[in-house]
Amino acid sequence: MKIIDKLAKIDRRIIYLILAVVVILPMIFPSVLRVRVMPPVEKLFHAVDNVPKEKALIIDFDYAPQTAPELEPMGFALLRHAFRKRTKVLILSLYVQMLGLAQNALTEVIEEFNSVAETNTDSIIYGRDYVFLGWVPPPIIPILGMGESITNVYQVDYYGNRTDTLPLMKEIKNYNNVGLLVSLSGSDPPEWWIAYAQNRFGLQVGAGVTAVSASKYFSYYQTGQFSGLMVGMKGAAEYEEMIEKELAIKSRRIASEALPPLTYAHLVIMVFIVIGNISFLMQRRKK
């Protein structure tokens, strides 16, 4: 009984310490967990894979530093997938703070591809293979406006070039030339793309969302409004598994590396929940 009483009054800092140890140890001594790909991620992979050659994939990078650990691996995996398939890619953000992280992901993935490219055709070239459209406020303006004309909404790209001078933008005029949009976000943007772009222009929308918002977004996947869905670190790890298995893309799997510490942390939290409930019931019985 004394142990239960002590556990009920345990200092929260000890719990933080235990959690930190449980997360750090598997990172220093890594192990491999098998990643089982679930249907929502598999569907998203195939939706990206099936974007027609003449159409573009839009990736909406709407994650900030506080959601980057979950969403950034998704962005990397999507870019690798699209560039390996030579799909035309348009990048944008609906919020200003996200532009730097989008640029970061682009720089790293393009460097990976261009470092092994032997010819101009193999390389990933700005304006030909991808365009970083940047940011235009407020979000509803670009979402609705791109249905009419992308270059009218984004008259200059992130780097200050006039978009109507870029070769890729001569082919991609509006949503009619877009095969799929994937929104990576920890808040509302995936819903906005459904409400405004899909509803009015019939745009296919996929999403990568944080685990916190998963229960909200699964309903859009179930109704078919999302062509596919990645949820949290686990969803990102599943997409990494898909691109490695299907396209033989060998690169660092940040999300997959995070799964062992994530699993052990969950187990520890479950143990704490059980202990907390037992001690609560025991104390109530004593009273």
């Binding site: 997360v23 750090i24 685990a211 916190v212 998963a214 229960s215 510490p261 969950h266």
Partner: peptide, 18 residues
């Protein structure tokens, strides 16, 4: 929702520790 929230918060911790 709570289970997913735990997953999200631990993911953030892992990201910072990485």
């Amino acid at each position: 929702a709570f289970g997913y929230t735990v997953m999200a918060r631990v993911s953030l911790l892992i990201g910072r520790l990485q």
